[in-house]
Amino acid sequence: MTNGTDRRTVLAALAASVLPGGLRAEENLVMRRSPIPGEDPHWYAFGQNGPWNPHSEPFIVPYEAARVVVHAPRGVKTGRLVVFSHGALTDPLVYRPLLQHWASHGFVVAAPVHDDSIFMRGLLARRAEAKGGSSWDVDRVLNDALAWDGRCEACRLPLEHVDRIQKVIGYSVNTERPIIIGHEFGAYVVQLLLGAKVVADMGKPLKFIDPRWYAGMMFSPQGVGVMGLTEDSWGGVSKPFMVAQAGLDADFTGQTAEQRLDAFNRSAPGNKHLAWFPQARRNLPIGPSAGGSLAEKTQFEDFRAITTAFLYAYSNYDEAVFHQLITDWPERATLKRVRTAYR
Rank of each mutant, 00 (worst) to 15 (best):
R8W: 10
A15G: 05
L29W: 02
E39D: 03
N49T: 08
G50M: 11
G50T: 08
F59W: 09
I60R: 14
I60Q: 09
E64C: 01
V68N: 11
H71M: 02
V76I: 15
G79H: 03
T90R: 11
Q100I: 00
S104M: 05
S104Q: 10
V108M: 03
M120L: 11
R126F: 10
A128I: 09
V141Y: 11
W148M: 05
L159T: 11
R164A: 14
I165Q: 01
Q166C: 12
Q166F: 01
K167M: 08
V168R: 13
I169F: 06
N174I: 06
R177F: 13
I181V: 15
V190N: 06
Q191K: 02
M202Y: 11
F208G: 03
D210F: 04
G223T: 12
V224C: 10
M227R: 15
E231A: 15
D232H: 13
F241C: 02
F241D: 01
M242I: 08
A244D: 00
A244W: 01
Q245M: 15
Q255K: 08
A257N: 01
A257S: 14
D262M: 09
A263M: 13
N265I: 04
N265L: 13
P269S: 04
G270N: 06
A280L: 02
P288I: 14
T298F: 01
E301G: 05
F303G: 04
T307E: 08
S315H: 07
S315R: 10
D318V: 11
L325C: 06
W329E: 06
K336C: 09
T340M: 05
